[in-house]
Structures are given as structure tokens and as C-alpha cells.
Computed example of a mutant assay.
Amino acid sequence: MIPINRRLKKVSEYVTGERLADIGSDHAFLPMYCLEQGYITSAIAGEVIPGPYSAAVKSVARHGYKNQIDIRLGNGLTILNPEEDTIDTVTICGMGGPLIAKILNEGFKHIPHRPRLILQSNIQSEPIRRFLQANGYHIVTETLIKERAHIYEIIVADAGTMSLSEQDFKFGPFLHPKPSELFVEKWMREIEALADIKKQLDPVQHQKRYDEITRQENEIKEVLNR
């Protein structure tokens, strides 16, 4: 059995098609698990740092998947060859939303066939949603999962169009209309973090920043109190 955490196991449920590209693969546990479960027939696993790349190579060899998983060293989606690599699903997990959006922006031309995107952010998912809308993708589902006290967002998107509101961009079109317990917990934590920042600010000396934090607090409370 491939050792996989709850977060990546949840991500695997949305993988579709024959071939997966997992960017920032971290020991290649996700593609190995997907192969083990019969979700896919082959995968590409990308790592940008030599250490994790070597760890992934050893991990894949140890579990007997080196003929099915092609491990590549390189930056984000640029490891993919747009002419030769036919990818059905791309996963980018375990990073902040701004970094995931940056990876998509810098390497988008490497996935011209518009595969499914499964994007699991640790923080700040808004830039991901803005990228998807601007680049011909629509969100098909979103979910939250809690692991080791941290709450993660998973966004699943296919090629298509959408028109999100400002609340949708910030809170998630599938998440905020009917707030779950995890959703409430996540955003209550954010309110607490903003309140801690405000305590360190002088309302007069730092008026602009103070007012911006107050605006953010009110925005969150509006969604939670509907």
C-alpha cells in the first residue's frame, strides 16, 4: 500500500483520464497511489529542487513504478512537452494559492490540450480562481479538508467559461453559498488573525492599513452571518 495522507487521497478522487502530471510531487506518493488504485495508467512527476527529485526517483523505484512514472527535474509545468505529452489531469498540491497561480501563468502554454486541473492550496486561493476564469476554465467543484489542524482547499476545474462574483473569487463559488463547519472554522481563524494584526496597529498612524483590515473582517462576517 502506498502511504498517502487524507489530503492527497481526497485529491486523487478527482483525477480523470489515463495520464496524470503531478507538479511538485514530493516522493511521488499521489501518482503512485493513483496507479495502485487503477485511476490512471501512467504519470509524470515534476520536482524543481534536486533533493526532492532524487527522493521521488528512489521512492518510485522502491515501490516498483519506475516504468509507469516519468520523474522530471524542472520548473513547474515547463517539464511538460506540449507536442508529445498528452496529459488528462494536472495536479498542483501543497502550495500557497499565489504560487500555484504563478506556476499556471508561467507554464500554461505547456498544457495546450486543456487537461483537468486539480489545485490544492494551503492559503489564499483567490489568485487561482482569477487565473482559471481569465484562461478559459470553469470550476466544477471545490471542497475543504482538515488535516493536522490545517484546513486545505481543493479546486477542480475543466476547460470552459465562468463568471464569478468578487465573493466567489475570495470564498469559492461552491463553498460560500452553503458554508460547512470547516468553512466557518477556516474563516473564523482568519478573522482572529486579522484582529491580532489590528492590535499592533495605531488606528491613526496606520489608518489605511487599519481600515483595509476592518474591511476584510466585515467582508468575512457578511458571508458567515448570512
Rank of each mutant, 00 (worst) to 15 (best):
Y210K: 12
I69F: 03
F131K: 05
L117G: 01
F108P: 00
T143P: 02
A157E: 01
D88M: 02
F171G: 02
R226I: 08
G94M: 09
L175C: 08
Y39D: 03
T91C: 12
Y137N: 10
F171W: 09
A193Q: 10
T161R: 11
G64L: 11
I87C: 05
E106K: 10
I128T: 02
E142H: 03
P203C: 11
G24E: 09
N67Q: 15
I220E: 10
E83N: 07
K170I: 14
I4W: 08
I139E: 06
E222A: 14
I197V: 14
Y53W: 14
S59L: 04
R226W: 07
F29C: 02
L80S: 06
A55S: 15
Y53A: 11
A134F: 03
L73G: 04
M188C: 02
Y137F: 13
P82F: 00
L164C: 11
Y152E: 06
A195K: 14
L144F: 12
I79V: 15
I79C: 07
L104P: 01
L175K: 02
A28H: 03
K109V: 10
G136C: 12
S163P: 00
P112M: 11
P52I: 11
L201K: 10
Q120R: 04
E142M: 09
P112N: 08
R189V: 00
L8S: 05
G38K: 09
S25Q: 04
K9P: 00
M32H: 08
H27S: 07
L104E: 06
G96V: 13
A101N: 07
T214W: 01
F29S: 14
E47H: 03
T141P: 04
H138I: 09
N67T: 14
L164D: 10
L20A: 14
Q124M: 13
T143Y: 10
F174I: 11
S54D: 13
K146V: 01
Y39L: 15
S54T: 05
L144H: 00
E106T: 05
N67Y: 02
K186C: 04
K58N: 15
T86R: 10
Q205L: 13
L77G: 04
E212M: 12
P112E: 12
E47L: 05
V204D: 14
L77D: 08
R72Q: 04
D211Y: 00
V48Q: 07
L224Y: 05
K10T: 15
G107W: 05
